[in-house]
Design a protein around this nucleic acid. Structure first.
Length: 523
RNA sequence: GGCGCCAUCGUCUAGUCUGGUCUAGGACAUCGGCUUUUCAAGCCGGUAACCCGGGUUCGAAUCCCGGUGGCGCUACCA
């Protein structure tokens, strides 16, 4: 039987979803879809101090916005309200309650005891690490039974001092193993007396080799690692331990994650081996780099998905841009619909080197997607922005503006800046009205001539074609730039805008002539 | 410092596994042209790269070795 493909995105809710996390999620999701497998969302909230449910929400909401849907994992509260039937279906088939811990699980993936909360979907839950403490305690026990874990009473200060010493001595800083031989009975007594301690894993000294789908064979010498900390307490696991337990129990087949986890991989493999767990396949993604080549997620500035969302990047564009950062299809295609992407995707074609974030290309892709949208759809994206500005016009008017501004905006927020003049004439200086070196009186004369001709046109005939028939011959006499430039500026109040005929058709006769008269007063 | 990963136009990358078809292809950006009153869009064209040094070979971007450089990790964070 072929093993089912199961991937996961396992963010810690210590910050909002950022580009790097989103891309990791995208690659996991794409691979699972391509292979007909399952994509799982798991919240790694073991760091109580830094984790926050607001971040958890942000992560889930933005994944949804990107249309990255997880097959298993927590569900948003908003979904909770309308998903009652699905939930009961899932939980009726849950395994019966068993003893709290110390018992072997009946089978892999089944969770002992009732889940504390039911706000998740999938049969391998709970999907929040803080709700999985029983599982960690169980495997921690196993480790103690096998004499592969011990309590460490060294203080942080002590550890830090040792570290500095080793660094100075040119050694690889690692834990000395000082507490390794404290007998467990004694340790537990000391702990009971209130001595603070953590739990360490006895790291065997050996060469750890594994195959990375993207990078090929990778090996580490675990002797350089030292006994790693795996938990603050039986019920407070640390990353390297909880990951191993969860990936095993959730039957993750492929661990696809950022390159920064490469040095963690041998540690996790050693724990897997100690617990006799199978090793999943690994794929370590290249990092997204800032223009100075530093790791992007370390930098301050624009990095969160929510920020891009607010600035008017379309979800399709974010997805498309992100997937191209470190991956390329066999052909030269660069614009993808989600379906085509799934079909073309393969882990093997992911790049090894880090990819520098290219904001200009991002903008270009976003512009392409904006232009692909039909006007009505674009209006819906724009509506919140328009309403915020209190631009009180009807949809027919908005649609006309959108039709011509669509060609020039790269982000939805650009619309505010570029199309604002349709709703309200901005302030501008008289100098702007003059085309190159045309004197002010000549400019005024041309505008006067223009407005006189426009007055002759009826409101209903105030359309582009008709206006052109009247003004084109006139412009041939005065000089095109001399006529069109001041006209366009008086209509828009801007150096750059669509052409005057398009603007006039939208503005209508009354408003157009009013604006030209305002310009004349300036001259 | 130690360990690990990586290295093709300014940037994202194709090509590298299976040496010749690569005087290295595409995209963004940039420059020029067309269109044009401006900006954008569109179309056409240009500039621009195999990190360095050895080796193997008739032949190397591609294989091997050695440098150099960059990045990541080096927590009772993940």
């Amino acid at each position: 039987m072929k093993q089912e493909i199961r991937t996961r995105f396992a963010p810690s809710p210590t910050g909002p979803l950022h580009l790097g996390g989103a891309r990791t999620a995208i690659f996991n999701w794409l691979f699972a879809k391509k292979m007909g497998g399952a994509f799982i969302l798991r919240i790694e909230d073991t760091d109580a101090e830094r984790s926050d449910v607001r971040f958890e929400r942000d992560i889930m909401e933005n994944l949804r916005w990107l249309r990255i849907f997880w097959d298993e994992g927590p569900i948003l509260e908003t979904e909770l309200l309308k998903s009652e039937p699905i939930r009961s279906e899932i939980f009726e088939s849950e395994p019966q309650s068993r003893g709290p811990h110390g018992r072997k699980p009946q089978s892999r993936g089944q969770v002992e005891g009732k889940p504390k909360t039911k706000n998740y979907i999938g049969n391998f839950g709970p999907y929040r690490q803080t709700e999985r403490t029983e599982r960690y305690a169980y495997f921690m026990d196993t480790l103690f039974e096998k004499d592969l874990a011990y309590y460490c009473f060294c203080s942080k200060e002590e550890l830090e001092m040792r570290r500095q010493e080793m660094l100075l001595g040119g050694e690889a800083p690692r834990y000395s193993g000082k507490c390794r031989d404290i007998r467990i009975k004694e340790a537990r007594e000391r702990k009971k007396r209130g001595e603070s301690c953590i739990i360490r894993f006895k790291v065997p000294e050996k060469k750890v080799t594994f195959k990375d789908i993207i990078r090929g064979d990778i090996s580490f010498n675990s002797a350089l690692v030292g006994d790693i900390a795996i938990a603050k307490d039986e019920r407070m696991p640390l990353y390297n331990f909880s990951v191993v337990v969860d990936d095993f129990e959730m039957q993750i087949s492929h661990v696809i994650r950022g390159e920064e986890h490469l040095p963690n991989t041998p540690k996790q493999i050693l724990i897997q081996q100690a617990l006799k767990m199978p090793m999943p396949a690994y794929a370590h993604l290249p990092l997204i780099l800032a223009p100075d080549k530093s790791k992007m997620s370390k930098r301050v500035g624009l990095f969160n998905i929510a920020d891009y969302r607010e600035q008017g990047y379309l979800p399709e564009a974010v997805l498309n841009f992100l997937v191209l950062l470190g991956w390329h299809p066999e052909d030269n295609q660069e614009m993808f619909a989600a379906d085509g992407l799934v079909e073309k995707f393969s882990l093997e074609r992911i790049q090894k080197a880090g990819a520098i974030f290219n904001a200009q290309k991002f903008d270009w892709i976003n512009g392409e997607y904006i232009r692909k949208l039909n006007n009505a759809a674009l209006l819906e994206y724009l509506r919140p922005l328009i309403e915020k500005r209190e631009w009180l016009k009807d949809d027919a008017f908005h649609l006309k503006v959108i039709a011509i501004e669509k060609e020039r905006i790269k982000r939805l927020s650009d619309f505010l800046e570029m199309a604002g003049f349709f709703y309200q004439l901005p302030e501008y200086g008289s100098k702007m009205l003059q085309w190159k070196n045309t004197p002010a009186d000549e400019t005024a004369a041309n505008l006067r001539l223009t407005v006189e001709e426009l007055e002759k046109v009826s409101e209903t005939e105030f359309i582009k074609g008709r206006l052109e028939r009247i003004l084109v011959p006139l412009a041939e006499e005065t000089g095109r730039g001399e006529l069109y430039w001041p006209l366009r500026v008086s209509l828009s109040g801007k150096e750059a805008s669509p052409g005057p005929f398009e603007i006039m058709e939208i503005l209508g006769k009354e408003e157009s002539t009013r604006r030209i008269r305002i310009a004349l007063e300036k001259l």
